[in-house]
Design a protein around this nucleic acid. Structure first.
Lengths: 249, 249
DNA sequence: GTCGAAACGAGAGCACTGCTCACGTTTCAT
DNA sequence: ATGAAACGTGAGCAGTGCTCTCGTTTCGAC
């Protein structure tokens, strides 16, 4: 491996300078981290060009000039590599949403909602296969491991915090819709994830709004607006505005 | 092939009875139709148990006790088989929606909306992989051939007709929301698919409601409501009622 | 510094996949 | 009856994910 050879040379160069041990972490740990990242990066580009079902560990290994079996030193299976890409995708979109939200005044509720919705859509359009990986059909045999839970909720929690902030600013809406148990209790528990109050009815509307937003993006990205709506930007913005007005009044 | 042999025997039996030609269509056409159906049926069960990415033509052929290459006599590629399954899925859900809608009085607008939404969700829950095939991540390399367009719109057209009927019964809503061109014209063209009038603002709300409905189902089926909402029926019904109230007022 | 264990890279190999091709058989239209 | 098209099969190809073995390298304990 060219890369490994270069790092080994660095190790011996340093050793020749009289350093009795390499700086922590060891060269091995460093190389491992870098190769793990290189595998993921290469896999991500293949995902972008070929799609998830066509992601081939052998093709990734070939591009990195490794034997295909070497990949298994870093990821125990193809599924594990996909899981790592899923975690990365959740974290990336979550970071985009957090940043978009943070770019607005805390009391600009509508602005934040629009910014959140735009961030998700823009990221999705720029990374359709990653979007499909996390919000499209589940990869077979995939069960969400514990380490995807926190990344998976990052984006949603931003919206939830927006709801709590809206309640704090506007007060709770007069929503008298009856919500039956046990759903009411389940929705009541949602506010524990936010800093502030999110009544059950608001949690329900928020989740439905999230579903609508993702539904809109999926319709667009998965080809269901073909021959119907061409002015996609306008349609999405129109819908998000209407939803924001309901959600944040 | 057991089945083919049995049909050939039937042909010779009839021939021995002095019939100079088999009844139209020929035995070949009949066998072809039956085998095509058998391949699709077997593929559908494999889809249900293994998921789309794991659908194997060889496994289908093995179960039908055919050589794997025989499948290519009926479907020119794996992609063509998947396309056939996609068409079937669209037609099945479309028929479910049409039937559910037809089971309600024409002027029971809310009842029809709830029936439509329930039909889609029930079918999706009973056939999650088929749902994923048509409303989840697109199969790689798949471009919707012309023959999927009509089946793909069957379900949506039922909802659209509901909107037109609501307009006919209640009159057009007072919705003054500005819709920019060219989106307004695009949405205005949607009513050409319904028997009646669907103003642009209503078409937009209808499409967004459809997105929300599919978004809700996808969140549920694709695992995003885990540890959040357990009372799925109640959540879905609550949301569909609220959306119906907005949509059909 | 030495030593043993763990990590690593490579290559061979296995079972499986989608698909092509050639050949013999069957059906169909003339 | 005849020739063409459709059909079923088996062999084969190139590709896949993954396992295993072996030699090499790094690392931590002594």
């Amino acid at each position: 491996m060219f890369r490994f050879t270069a790092l080994a040379f660095e190790y011996w160069t340093r050793h020749a300078e009289g350093v009795s041990k390499p700086a922590a972490p060891g060269i091995r740990a460093r190389v491992r981290a870098e190769l793990t990242e290189a595998i993921k990066t290469t896999a991500r580009t293949h995902l972008a060009s070929e799609g998830a079902p066509s992601l081939s560990l052998r093709a990734v290994a070939r591009e990195l000039e490794m034997a295909s079996s070497a990949i298994y030193r870093y990821f125990p299976s193809r599924e594990a590599l996909l899981t790592a890409l899923i975690i990365d995708a959740y974290n990336t979109v979550g970071a985009c949403v957090e940043e978009a939200d943070a770019g607005r005044e805390r009391d600009d509720l509508e602005g934040r909602w629009i910014a959140i919705g735009s961030a998700v859509r823009e990221w999705a359009r720029a990374n359709p296969h990653e979007y499909a990986l996390i919000y499209g059909s589940p990869v077979p045999g995939y069960a969400a491991p514990d380490d995807t839970i926190v990344p998976a909720t990052r984006a949603t929690l931003v919206m939830l915090q927006l709801l709590a902030d809206a309640i704090a600013i506007n007060g709770a809406p007069d929503d008298t819709t009856e919500i039956p148990e046990p759903l009411r209790s389940e929705l009541a528990a949602v506010e524990s994830f936010a800093d502030g109050s999110v009544p059950p009815a608001v949690a329900a509307i928020g989740l439905a709004a999230w579903a609508e937003m993702l539904g809109m993006i999926s319709l667009e990205l998965f080809g269901h607006l073909e021959n119907v709506v061409y002015d996609r930007d306008a349609f999405y913005n129109h819908t998000m505005r209407a939803t924001g007005a309901r959600l944040l009044r």
